[in-house]
Write a protein that binds this DNA or RNA. Structure first.
Length: 121
DNA sequence: AACGTGACGAGGA
DNA sequence: ATCCTCGCCACGT
């Protein structure tokens, strides 16, 4: 913040806010959506500084492997698992099945557009 | 200006 | 599959 990059954070938060309920996205994915290629690390950093993290679906952001990146023992990690589970996302040992919950904007549009429902397989 | 840091990611051992 | 190393980007000291 303090710098013009404030807009840069806004984009990240905006991208995070775009993640649909019950779905998850990776840091790298959010970075790209925010226009910051390979800026995955920045996403996590920005989320930590998010002023409105209470209303932001930060918990829907995981690493590319579908694994929660927040260290164990952290109160926040526990909250993330709790919130995801509350949305119907199955979390096992801090891991989520990306094949099932990964948010794919393109596919999402394809699925929700026509008439199908979001549950392949 | 330089070096270290982090809620990352890809690739090699 | 797990562990380690290196590359990335922007920030903090």
């Amino acid at each position: 913040m303090s710098r013009k990059n404030n807009e840069f954070y806004a984009r990240i938060w905006n991208a995070v806010a775009a993640i649909p309920y019950g779905r998850v996205a990776s840091y790298g994915q959010i970075a790209e959506l925010a226009g910051i290629a390979r800026g995955a690390r920045m996403v996590g950093w920005a989320l930590g500084k998010a002023p409105d993290r209470m209303t932001l679906p930060w918990y829907r952001v995981l690493n590319a492997q579908g694994r929660i990146s927040i260290p164990k023992g952290s109160r926040v990690r526990d909250e993330q698992i709790r919130r995801l589970t509350d949305e119907g996302v199955v979390v096992v040992d801090g891991c989520v099945d990306m094949r099932r919950y990964h948010w794919q904007p393109d596919l999402d549009e394809l699925v929700w557009g026509p008439a199908a429902f979001g549950d392949d397989d």
